[in-house]
Design a protein around this nucleic acid. Structure first.
Lengths: 117, 117
DNA sequence: TCTGTCATACGATGCTCATCGTACATGACG
DNA sequence: CGTCATGTACGATGAGCATCGTATGACAGA
């Protein structure tokens, strides 16, 4: 596998372009919050590797939302896309934000039967 | 005016009952985020004193959401209800969370023409 | 008591978006 | 080349909820 510096990354907002409002909206969704926790635990993850109770296309949509808001960064390796949290950058810009969220004990009902179809 | 210890307070979740997911959902709304910033600047605020581009009944709804999620505390004084941020408590439970959010520069489009009616 | 202000409750409305299924593109592997 | 897996794009659908107007209750002051 190649080094990170040689990988191709999907477009993402720069540090000073990250809007705290969009970050909060991204983290407000239960499934996305669960994805964030899984990424924090596993380091990286893809659409199929993340264990969330939604279909793959929905996970892809959530990862896109997280990336466009600046929460995760995605690099292309072969046919898969590996996403990871931008923890260091976020901690620099919003000290304590992600740390407190990840440290917080997930209270009940994290995975309900949703609507959709 | 009476001392805080003698005031009547609306019911609110205890510190260890606050769910980070509900807090994030509460802060995700642009109007509520603006209310939070106004409260941080003014110390306290009521439905009519807060300068937000929505009707009074909507502000009341938002303040209720913020209170039930644990972000603000509301005390009854006379005929009005004064709400304030639970900054110290939140900082204790989620260090850096509110601090980073309040310190973040509010990027564009904070007050768009919304739907509703 | 009467009036005005404050806040909430309630129902209605319609936008937002989370979700899904399907189709399609791309890369890996024979 | 063909086959399979991965991920995304797209359109459709429906639940959630932000918003409003109105009605209601409570308090303050004259």
């Amino acid at each position: 596998m190649m080094r990170d510096s040689q990988d191709t990354w999907l477009p993402q907002p720069a540090l000073d372009e990250i809007d705290i409002g969009q970050v909060l909206q991204a983290l407000a969704d239960p499934v996305r919050l669960q994805i964030v926790r899984l990424l924090a635990a596993a380091g990286e993850g893809s659409c199929t590797s993340l264990d969330v109770p939604v279909k793959r296309s929905t996970v892809s949509h959530h990862l896109r939302t997280l990336r466009e808001s600046g929460v995760v960064a995605t690099r292309l390796v072969g046919n898969t896309r590996l996403s990871r949290l931008r923890l260091a950058e976020l901690e620099e810009h919003f000290p304590g934000l992600m740390t407190s969220i990840l440290a917080a004990t997930p209270r009940g009902r994290q995975l309900e039967v949703t609507h959709g179809r």
